[in-house]
Write a protein that binds this DNA or RNA. Structure first.
Lengths: 204, 204
DNA sequence: GTCTATATGAAGATAGAC
DNA sequence: GTCTATCTTCATATAGAC
């Protein structure tokens, strides 16, 4: 029915949508074919099989993840400004409905395709943590941050920032995140991260 | 083959193990029957069908989740002591291999069984956050904590504490959490939560 | 390269004997 | 209550025509 190089793209789009909705086992090649407007043998000719198609889809998604989030010109701004921009940008990307759905898909299939789980962690969370850790490192050198392991710091800031909302989305407690609520969580996260919540200070 | 009241228990155990390993779609009633040492019609007689069995298994898991984690006699101890005990106890429970596997299962099937996802969130994370928020509230009243929304504070402390390690387990980056590493993350989390990481103080 | 048609197997579910 | 045997449906995958 469809012709030329559009076929691959159509199959990939249909496959991504269906896998995200139904998971690997819940998705049939029949349905992908139907949604892409092609026949089953076409899919087998192009991608080999269901598993290979699945890996291909998620692998290309991972490849697209490696986008820098921190502004490279961040070094002449205050710690709080940079963190705020980062928090806004990162949450806007990561708490998007479809991104969370893909996140869920990777969680679901990390057992069946362990190399895919690791790949996603490296290309997604890990690469952001690395970027953030390098930034923290510079600010530690400048004496703005205490000398805490920057990698662990990055992981924990990320957890602090994303988890409360993402958890609710993952369990279908909320359908999507409205930017007002996200903003609140961002501010609390930054405040907590920089100053803690204790009234009685424990150091000078 | 098996007789009496043991049958239900055997089926439930086999079902939980298989669902956790393979997910809902990846699990066949045949395999549950084989692992439980019973025949398929026995399972249908007891539980109705595959979906009902799945819901039953996860629902009873949720019912068992509602265990208080915070020591009720916590009020005569320092904030830091209570948080440390909480962090140790909570991570020991939640970062267990099988608990993470069940967490993954709820994430995976929260679309197909939305009421189950909500039920898990309420009985698990939410109930812990509630408990923690009540504790924070008392410490705010005592003037030990700044006046921040205690519910949001609880969610963010939880994310700060659990996410770095749980994320790696969910994506099969690490197989399990060793208690030494968990201890490190606990200490950093508590320190961060109480005092932040900024060297230049922003308030009195 | 893409289709129609089909082979082959496995899944969920049930009938009927004991 | 539990079994053996079977029904029905739908899955992945492929053969062969165009």
């Amino acid at each position: 029915m469809r012709r030329g190089g559009f076929v691959r793209q159509a199959v990939e789009d249909a496959a991504r949508a269906t896998f995200v909705e139904r998971g690997f086992e819940g998705t049939s090649v029949d349905e992908i074919a139907r949604r892409a407007g092609v026949s089953k043998p076409t899919i087998y000719a192009h991608f080999g099989g269901k598993s290979e198609l699945f890996v291909h889809i998620l692998e290309s998604y991972c490849a697209r993840l490696l986008t820098p989030i921190l502004d490279s010109a961040a070094d002449d701004r205050t710690l709080e400004e940079v963190l705020r921009d980062f928090a806004r940008g990162y949450t806007r990307i990561v708490l998007d409905r479809e991104v969370v759905a893909l996140h869920r898909l990777f969680v679901s299939e990390a057992q069946r395709f362990p190399e895919l789980g690791r790949r996603y962690y490296d290309a997604g969370p890990q690469s952001v943590h690395d970027e953030l850790a390098r930034f923290f490192n510079r600010r530690i050198a400048l004496g703005e941050l205490r000398e805490v392991d920057p990698q662990r710091l990055a992981e924990q800031f990320s957890g602090l920032l994303l988890t409360p909302i993402r958890l609710k989305m993952l369990f279908a407690v909320i359908d999507e995140s409205d930017s007002e609520t996200v903003g609140l969580y961002c501010e609390t996260a930054i405040d907590l991260f920089l100053s803690g919540v204790s009234r009685s200070r424990r150091r000078g």
